[in-house]
């Protein structure tokens, strides 16, 4: 971690302590720093189909931060504490969905084919990167929940593997394995999508 990042992290804890003393401006600053990564982390975890649920959980995470402002102590990084709250809420949500018989990562083939069809006629143009970005997001949603969580914490929120271990409560080897499998799955998924698009393009041509 660089010196600037360390200072930034220290500022998070300072801001949280300030908010605990009654400074709501400190919370606004804290929220502005972390709302984007946190929001994307929750949205990616729940999938594009549960956008409303993602917003609900996002709000719940910050409400818990607000409610625990007086109990917060600097035992770990603020972001570790913040994402651990989100992780616990997501675990609860996954369990509820499993009871209901749903699977968050289940993305139908029709949706997959629809994305491909949308970009099929544009891939040869300047929007080729847009297609890849849509594809990578879709591939992330297709990952196993634990692999997706490790990938998002590592590359979306920017945590070190050790911090990911602390958040998800797993051993470092386990997290590394999940990350390795996640990258492998994404690679295969992207190659499959790009290959399918090329095949489709040739057909269209």
């Amino acid at each position: 971690m660089t010196q600037i990042a360390q200072q930034h992290a220290n500022m998070d804890e300072t801001l949280m302590l300030e908010y605990g003393k009654g400074n709501d401006t400190a919370f606004a600053e804290l929220y502005a720093r972390h709302k984007g990564p946190m929001y994307r982390y929750i949205c990616r975890q729940l999938g594009s189909k549960q956008h409303n649920k993602a917003q609900e959980l996002f709000q719940e995470v910050w409400v818990r931060v607000i409610d625990n402002r007086n109990n917060y102590t600097v035992e770990a990084k603020f972001t570790t504490w913040l994402y651990r709250i989100a992780h616990n809420l997501l675990i609860d949500e996954h369990r509820k969905n499993q009871v209901r018989g749903e699977h968050l990562t289940l993305v139908s083939d029709e949706q997959d084919e629809g994305i491909l069809a949308f970009h099929q006629g544009k891939q040869e143009g300047s929007v080729h990167n847009d297609f890849l970005q849509q594809a990578i997001k879709h591939c992330v949603e297709l990952l196993m929940p634990q692999q997706r969580e490790a990938f998002l914490l590592r590359h979306e929120a920017g945590f070190d593997p050790s911090q990911v271990c602390e958040i998800v409560g797993a051993k470092p080897e386990t997290v590394k394995t999940r990350l390795r499998y996640a990258m492998s799955q994404l690679r295969d998924c992207l190659q499959r999508k790009v290959g399918a698009t090329e095949v489709g393009g040739e057909r269209e041509i």
């Binding site: 908010y19 009654g22 400074n23 709501d24 919370f27 606004a28 929220y31 709302k35 984007g36 929001y39 994307r40 949205c43 917003q55 996002f58 709000q59 910050w62 409400v63 607000i66 409610d67 402002r69 990167n129 847009d130 890849l132 970005q133 990578i136 997001k137 992330v140 590359h155 979306e156 992207l190």
Partner: peptide, 27 residues
Amino acid sequence: KLYQHNTDDLPPRQLDEVILARAAQEV
């Protein structure tokens, strides 16, 4: 890089206002 290239999804402004209002109210 492909994943991080265009990750600019943000919560809706209405949600921001609700959370910030809640924080100010509690204080």
